[in-house]
Amino acid sequence: MRKVFVQPFERAWQYRELIQVILWRELSVRFRNSFFSWGWAVAAPVSMLVVYTAVFSTTLKVSTESSSAGLGYYALSIFAGLIIFNLFSELLLRAPTLIHEHAPFVKRSIFPSEALAWIAMGRALVYAGIALVVLLIFELIFTRMLPWSVLLLPMLFVPLCLFLLGATWFLAALGAFTRDVSHLFITIVPLFLFATPVFYSALDVAEPVRWVLYLNPLTGFIEIARDILLRGSWPDPTTYLISTLVAVVVFVGGYAFFTRYRDLAIDVI
């Protein structure tokens, strides 16, 4: 019990300075040598949100649940979905090559390879955080106030991060043995954009088949995000419980898989 639930956090705490430094390195390289530097990190979500608002509030109305709630709301609903989706896709696309990418670290220095997942997640969270701030600002502009439930955001991020860490560990270890994992994700992630309620809401799907949508772990997290950020309510208890349970299982399983195969993984890359 202790080994899978406590140890990952203990070790991450032990290596926190290393994680911070490498995370800082990855972030600072990203926009170096550009005049607007971090402005680009803000420009991307802002321009996306502006275009969505323009397009989806005038011509395209795919979702009945969201579009009935007024101008801008639908765009925000898509945007909330996209923040979660992009967080997943950035990590899952990168995870299979994570150990390859850091081969000099893990093969030539005493580097705790499990820290790579924390670093990758940290980077993805920074971009998601920027997008989230943009979303909240636009919501404030559209509706003049933010729902109280925004305070529940940690409730979303704790299970979300557990899920992402577990998935990253699992895919990183597996991806060290075969490049197929990487190709698989490059192929299916774009398809998942439509199998996930990003441009529509789970509530738009007829009740009898809605559960199919929830087989996709992103659905739960996206709907929780919308409850908290837009609908101004507590997350749906069933959705929340199941999502958290899945997250814990993925976290524990991913960590166990990673620790079991990491030595072999380092030998084969």
Partner: peptide, 23 residues
């Protein structure tokens, strides 16, 4: 084992030294 494992060529020498120390 390898000089400069983990160095990043976009970063400055000073920044790389900091990373090297952390590693």
């Amino acid at each position: 084992l390898a000089l400069g494992a983990g160095f990043d060529y976009e970063l400055t020498g000073r920044e790389n030294a900091k990373i090297g120390c952390a590693i």
